[in-house]
Design a binder for these strands. Structure first.
Lengths: 244, 244
DNA sequence: ACCTGAACACCGTTCAAGT
DNA sequence: ACCTGAACACCGTTCAAGT
């Protein structure tokens, strides 16, 4: 009966806030998350959240980071025995699957890894593995970036999603090639997945051509060089000349 | 002096609203666009906007469409004499440039072409040109989608943007490969552009391998088939078996 | 330290009223 | 037809007050 202002045991924790916020985003979308609504879901009043996060945006960032943290990175482990191409493929597939499981948070996620720890762990793992595979550091940076472009783009901007399932919206005189556009809507997921697979294969095929054209690594050893721990750190910032 | 409720000449038009909204988005970002703020910028009161658009979101969609409309599509014109690869390259570059000119509207743009006319014109142009170049219709659909994934992903989710320009945020013990991370921030634009170029080349190289492996088009004519106007329209919906 | 209600300065949208 | 002010049901965030 005692309606206290503060219970002996804290009602909230960052983890619980993030878990409930994530569930709410998944169930009802980003727009459903207001501080008042989220607080109600947690059984507290709105301003209570500000004891644990500085802004609502920080809460959403934490939700996004939790999703990023679920992306498998084990394929970049040197002990996993995956070559760079197989590792990139597995990573992209795992990355896309994680985003597809939580599509509503993707708009937050794509704002960049930011200070989110999981985003940084990903960038570090990709970079390290590509350098170990013989890619110049500047190129390793680009590969991490461009694969992220492709995966997040495929998770966010469904191409087929645009085609509304309403044939009357499309006058064939305006769009001579889109007569079947309304059919595309119902097959959206299939098309997006096929486009993702086609694009990923093309991307990896194209990168393989570039990798094959790489000069032998300095020192001329037979195996792939492994420079964990002793990179000079002076050419991993993009300062290496581009090759075109 | 007469403060009339309605002037003899309308104060607003859809075009003027879109133009001012676009300028506001460019100058101060999406968050700065409230109906009241936009109306003030237009010299009217908030609710006036609802005489021209049904929702605020429709206004933003129109702004996004205006940006889409500025993407060059002339490279897909059969008279332009560009092969499919050169046309895709030029389109991707033009597309990215249009988005880079108006980065703040990109989150709206990536929600899909929707009913926006410009988005549909783009999809139609790419699809038509790819089919003319001999790609099976299902594959032509995928190519449009996957290039859109890559271009929008590169415009939205800057990889380097995540690295805050503050070395203290990165404990080398946590991220062994990111010692120079704070340097990345100031080179963000360069890295993103290089990653885009590297990825685009890889994508096109990879697609060229797939195109070269295509069986000869039915009918066995020497030139690329041109089926403008007489596609059956029954296999452009993704029903063609994938080749993996 | 952690939660509360009240309050501030906003939102998008509706609507009756004006001309 | 097109614009207005008033109003409704919200926002994110701050803050003094409680324990």
């Amino acid at each position: 009966m005692c309606r206290m202002a503060r219970p002996r045991k804290p009602l909230l924790s960052r983890d619980r806030i993030v878990a409930v916020a994530g569930a709410l985003v998944d169930a009802e979308g980003l727009a459903a998350v207001s501080t008042r609504r989220l607080a109600a879901e947690l059984g507290v009043s709105g301003p209570s959240l500000y004891n644990h996060f500085r802004t609502k945006d920080e809460i959403l960032e934490a939700v996004a980071d939790a999703v990023s943290a679920r992306v498998d990175l084990s394929m970049f482990d040197p002990d996993a025995g995956r070559d760079w191409r197989a590792a990139l493929h597995d990573w992209a597939v795992s990355y896309r699957a994680a985003l597809a499981d939580h599509p509503n948070i993707v708009p937050v996620l794509v704002r960049g890894p930011g200070r989110r720890p999981a985003g940084l762990r990903v960038a570090d793992a990709v970079f390290g593995a590509m350098v170990r595979a013989g890619w110049p550091p500047a190129q390793a940076t680009r590969i991490g970036a461009l694969l992220r472009f492709f995966v997040t783009g495929s998770a966010l901007g469904s191409f087929a999603a645009g085609f509304v399932d309403d044939a009357s919206a499309y006058d064939p005189a305006d769009y001579p090639h889109l007569g079947q556009a309304h059919l595309l809507a119902e097959r959206q997921e299939r098309i997006d997945r096929d486009a993702f697979e086609t694009g990923l294969r093309a991307l990896l095929d194209g990168l393989a051509l570039q990798h094959a054209a790489l000069p032998d690594p300095a020192g001329g050893g037979p195996g792939p060089r492994d420079n964990r721990g002793d990179r000079g750190g002076r050419d991993d910032d993009g300062s290496v000349a581009t090759e075109r």
